Amino acid sequence: MTKDKSKVFLFIDDDLNPIAELETPIVFDLDTKKLPDGEHTLKIVSRSPSGKEGIRKINFMVSNGPTIKIEGLKNKDVVDGTLSLMINAYDKGNQKSFIINGSETPQTIPFWIWIIVILFIGWAIYYEITSYNIQ
């Protein structure tokens, strides 16, 4: 081990034991499949050859589980009565092949698209009526 290189220690969340102890410069592959879904913190502690230390913390979100999409209810909505919910959950698969089946969530057509369609149809009818009167 060379004495003129800095070392880095990688910690996940509040773990006292580092997941890796490496000499810089390095490329490190963090396997998030070993972490539960949710918020985590990567803490990098560096130690220079002279003994000085530096710390950097990076917050990140792990989402390895199936993605859940819901339509018909938003966070902090005030509701009453019966709600019609459209719920879909799909996985990323093995990431070596793309999964088509179930990977897209069907959605209702937004009201503003209906307004644009109705306005266009109204304009088309108006155009047809006025163009026949000219001839």
Rank of each mutant, 00 (worst) to 15 (best):
K96W: 09
V45T: 04
G81Y: 02
N101F: 07
D80C: 06
P106E: 06
I70R: 05
Q107L: 08
I134A: 06
I58R: 11
I70S: 05
S48F: 05
L22S: 01
S48N: 13
A20G: 02
K92T: 15
I87W: 13
K5G: 11
P49G: 04
D13P: 00
T130K: 14
G122W: 02
F9N: 00
L30V: 07
I19M: 00
D4Y: 06
S103A: 15
D77H: 02
S48C: 10
I100V: 15
E39D: 15
L10N: 01
M1Y: 05
G51A: 05
W123E: 06
Y127Q: 12
N64R: 06
D15Y: 00
I125T: 10
Q107P: 03
T32P: 01
I134Q: 10
S63R: 12
G102L: 10
T32Q: 04
R56S: 09
T108E: 15
I12A: 01
K74H: 14
I68V: 15
E39K: 14
N59Y: 06
G51E: 03
K92P: 02
G65H: 08
K96Q: 14
I113Y: 03
F120Q: 08
T41K: 15
T32M: 05
F60K: 02
F28R: 03
S131R: 15
I58T: 09
D77G: 03
Y90S: 07
F111S: 12
S46D: 03
R47P: 01
D31C: 02
P106W: 03
I12M: 00
P18W: 00
F111C: 02
L10S: 01
N101H: 08
P25A: 10
S131Q: 13
L119F: 07
K7N: 06
I87Y: 11
P110I: 01
N64I: 04
D91V: 09
T82H: 08
